[in-house]
Amino acid sequence: MIKHLLSIDQLVPDQIDLIMRTADSLREVGTRTIKKVPALRGRTVCNLFFEPSTRTRISFELAAKRLSADVVTFTADAKTSVSKGESFRDTAQTLQAMGVDAIVIRHSSSGAPVLLSKWVDASVINAGDGLHEHPTQALLDLYSIRERFGSFEGLRVGIVGDVVHSRVARSNVKALAKMGAIVTLVGPPTLMPPAVETWGVEVTTDLDEVLPKLDVAYLLRVQTERMNEKLFPTAREYAALWGLDRRRVAMMKPEGLIMHPGPMNRGVEIASNVADLERSIITNQVTNGISVRSALLYLMLGDTAVSDEDSEEDIDG
């Protein structure tokens, strides 16, 4: 397995399959009375969050704890060394000196995880960097789709809404395409990234036209906090054109799924009564996130000091 996970680009389909299968076993662990295995006992995982996050941070924390790793959390809020002016590099060197085995980083600057991976010996996992990528979100989304459909080949996935501000969309487009799904981006032109035509996916503004063809409608959060200018007139107008409401759900295939990376803006990209439908697997995505992140930690940290011995040889005893 790879040492760092910085981008979906690093993974080939076989590795993604292995992560999914390993996640199956870790999901089973999550159903036990004792939801914990000793695999990473004595290892330390550091959550290094320069941007606010609830679900991703807690998800990684539970994922590490399911494997018995120790977890420390560093958030760049008022009480930490960052507020005292410590540079990113010095923070990295401090963690390096403390000897952590993995660093899960979220940062508002694209590329911060790549820099970090050059400074430390620990495995670095990108938990969202600027407008670049959020690879573990894409992996848990793949896992949630696989859970319902079994495979990806030929599945049509529509990623709807605020694509330009979405690292989730960037990682998902790459991951889904790798696995053989057909992706369509849907939304207002002001929320489409520049040069989107080079992404190799279909792009449209007409949600009603594509909805009946989709196996998955993946709604992105409208990220008003990242918008410096008005990119659409009002939330109401956005909801009328690109929000998923009951009327639009009725146009979907009966088995079509609704997904959202969270946190949701109910009433904007997704109607409240749609978010709670059975076909909306938003809470499954959250549950699966723990298993998928556990699988990654196990595969990345469990494979560090590898001997060249073929593991298929007789290690049974």
Partner: peptide
Amino acid sequence: IDVSFYRDDIGIRRPKEISPT
């Protein structure tokens, strides 16, 4: 039962493919 998560050689040997318990 799959014993992968309980082995004493994690990080020393490449993990084998995990099967469902």
